[in-house]
Design a binder for these strands. Structure first.
Length: 331
DNA sequence: CTGCGAAA
DNA sequence: TTTCGCAGG
């Protein structure tokens, strides 16, 4: 989801090595949603424990976070707080889409159409409160910090990058650049062999498009965001030309003689005047080895061997300097 | 998505 | 040793 800027941004290809020693603010909603979508069986059934509770996200968090740390990257997660009332429309649409997809999934399963089943199952992925709370428990046990944002997690993460407390935001969405993230890295999820990491520098985007950040936000408003529908028939490219020609969203709307359902100023405020917390502390603590094993293997039916292998990777690094109470020395 | 054993 | 395919929970 998010703003559709794919056609106008100019990502730079980078490698994991370029992120060595860097602090990365992971957009928790985005990352966990990817786990819920992709960590499934062929027919779309997610991983579940004996109580029928979904555990796909635990698998993702355990292996991905561990692998990032092995690469010398310091990740932390940023969770969404309360979202703007303007997001309601998007949320309702998504909820309906998930519901429809869930029904199509069941039908496809009944009819034995496995590929369709998986497709619809992925679309029915939902990040429940339970998923969020479970994720926080696991992160805490792993000694990985997380921040609870007041509003949009992307906004908080972007603020932290802008401030210099994180080097980049890790997200698949382009919304971060609207929130002012100077650096966004896409595809941080695929930690496999030939990863296709993309670095999006806000500065480069603005230079290439020859507009300023306020105009970039206005452009997003024209194209459509999670908080408004945008104008029919206006995509990133047409919108860009209009913003360049008429300067701002109000003048473009005047010229086209159309109105948005929301005052653009309210939308601008979401991206430019968002709330954030600044009294956070990023501390990579000691992984609670037994705690992780008990939580994943004991409570959620993970293979103990696999959990031990993963958590020992974290643990092994800590043993290099036992006197250190945090993971700071690791990097 | 990632890990792991089987096959190449 | 590297790649592949499927299970994981």
């Amino acid at each position: 989801m998010g703003v559709k800027f794919k056609d106008i941004v100019n990502p730079e290809s980078i490698k994991f090595d370029d992120l060595k020693g860097k602090i990365v603010a992971l957009d928790a909603a985005n990352v966990i949603y990817q786990f819920l979508s992709s960590i499934r069986q062929a027919d779309g059934t997610p991983l579940m424990d004996h109580n029928g509770k979904v555990t796909s996200h635990f698998s993702g968090i355990l292996y991905r976070t561990t692998s990032l740390i092995e690469k010398g990257i310091k990740p932390f997660y940023v969770f969404d707080g309360k979202s703007s009332v303007l997001k309601k429309g998007t949320q309702i649409k998504r909820s309906e889409f998930r519901k429809e997809s869930h029904e199509k999934w069941k039908i496809a399963l009944d009819e034995g159409r496995i590929e369709d089943a998986r497709k619809y199952a992925v679309r029915s992925s939902r990040m429940s409160t339970e998923v969020v709370e479970g994720s926080k428990i696991l992160l805490e046990l792993m000694g990985i910090p997380y921040i609870q944002a007041k509003g949009e997690g992307e906004a908080q993460a972007s603020y932290m990058v802008d401030k210099g407390d994180a080097w980049c935001v890790g997200s698949q969405d382009y919304d971060c650049i609207l929130f002012g993230a100077t650096r966004t890295v896409k595809n941080l999820t695929i930690t496999g062999g030939r990863a296709n990491l993309e670095l999006i520098l806000l500065k480069n985007v603005l230079e290439k498009l020859k507009i300023n950040r306020y105009q970039l936000v206005d452009l997003a408003i024209l194209v459509g965001t999670d908080f408004n529908d945008g104008i029919n028939g206006i995509g990133a490219k047409k919108g860009l030309n209009l913003i360049k020609k008429y300067d701002d969203v109000y003048k473009v709307l005047d010229h086209l003689n159309v109105e948005l359902e929301v005052d653009p100023q309210r939308l601008r405020d979401i991206f430019l005047k968002h709330e954030f917390i600044s009294d956070y502390e990023l501390k990579w603590g000691n992984p609670d080895r037994d705690g992780v094993i008990e939580f994943l293997a004991g409570d959620h039916d993970f293979s103990e061997d696999r959990v031990v292998t993963a958590i020992d990777k974290l643990y092994k690094l800590r043993k290099i300097d036992n006197s250190q109470s945090s993971l700071e020395k690791w990097f």
